[in-house]
Design a protein around this nucleic acid. Structure first.
Ligand SMILES: [Mn+2]
Ligand SMILES: [Mn+2]
Ligand SMILES: [Zn+2]
Ligand SMILES: [Zn+2]
Lengths: 140, 140
DNA sequence: AATTAGATTAGAATAATTCTAATATATTGA
DNA sequence: TCAATATATTAGAATTATTCTAATCTAATT
């Protein structure tokens, strides 16, 4: 394998070492057109099925957090139902809005154009706004 | 003490037993005018300082989750900074928007009137919208 | 007031996450 | 080219967060 695919480009240009664990994870996460949302456990069980080379759970945590730090992933916390929370990661790292479908536990990107402009009317503090994100919950 | 204060009224009317642990927690959380946002660990260390009767951490979890189930508290998950998340609980149980100040890790309620109406333009699914909430992050 | 059924507490068990010693990779200079 | 060394990464161990459940407490019934 030449490892010169486009989805490895970000890894290659990041300064991170291209280890077989990272290549495997990178291949799965970034070789796709659409945004992908996943939890650490989703990722571990998918990787287990795809390959017989075991990647330790600690390494999956390490890699996902490293990718987040590099700006390749974004973390989205969701109160998924009355008794459990989920830490999702998102291959769409831009500021963007979400639907969360409580019947399927699916997190779905909303385009900016799907949500009207949001204007914060009262400037309660003088501090600079870093992001404004909307979460729309769909009932069960 | 008569335990007939207004902040105990919700507990009294909920069908839950008024134990000394719950009364202590209820007294601290609900005997106030303003919304209060806290984490489990915030609450534990505050309760430790206020009283010399130890309440076990498991009981604090139990009580907070019980209060949430009864609708006295609401859980708000925040990606507080690049390397840590927080499970806040909120004494304001209505659907409402928040500021999160990354320099102080403070979560602050936004009034509906402080945020313009939000209109979801594309009805991506046919499912009913349960809530729409905005999180505004203030930069460090 | 004793008996019983059900609710609650809190230490024990488990699950989630992070730490760090061992290993792997990259860099340097003979 | 290839040791030697420095730096980065991996993954099992340790720790922290959360849940489970047996012992205890409370309320209802007689
Ligand atoms: Mn958690
Ligand atoms: Mn967590
Ligand atoms: Zn997304
Ligand atoms: Zn709030």
């Amino acid at each position: 394998m030449k490892n010169n695919n486009v989805f490895l480009e970000k890894l290659r240009s990041s300064g991170l070492i291209l280890t077989k664990q990272r290549i495997e994870i990178c291949k799965f996460l970034f070789d796709r057109k659409e945004t992908f949302h996943f939890t650490i456990n989703d990722l571990q069980s998918i990787l287990r099925k795809r390959s017989n080379e075991k990647i330790s759970l600690a390494t999956i945590y390490n890699t996902v957090h490293t990718f987040k730090k590099k700006g390749f992933l974004k973390e989205i916390l969701i109160n998924s139902n009355s008794n459990s929370n989920s830490n999702y990661f998102d291959t769409n790292v831009s500021n963007h809005h979400h639907f969360f479908d409580e019947s399927t536990n699916e997190l779905i990107d909303l385009k900016d154009s799907d949500v009207g402009d949001i204007k914060i009317k009262k400037n309660i503090t003088k501090k600079k706004i870093k992001s404004i994100e909307v979460l729309v919950r769909l009932a069960k």
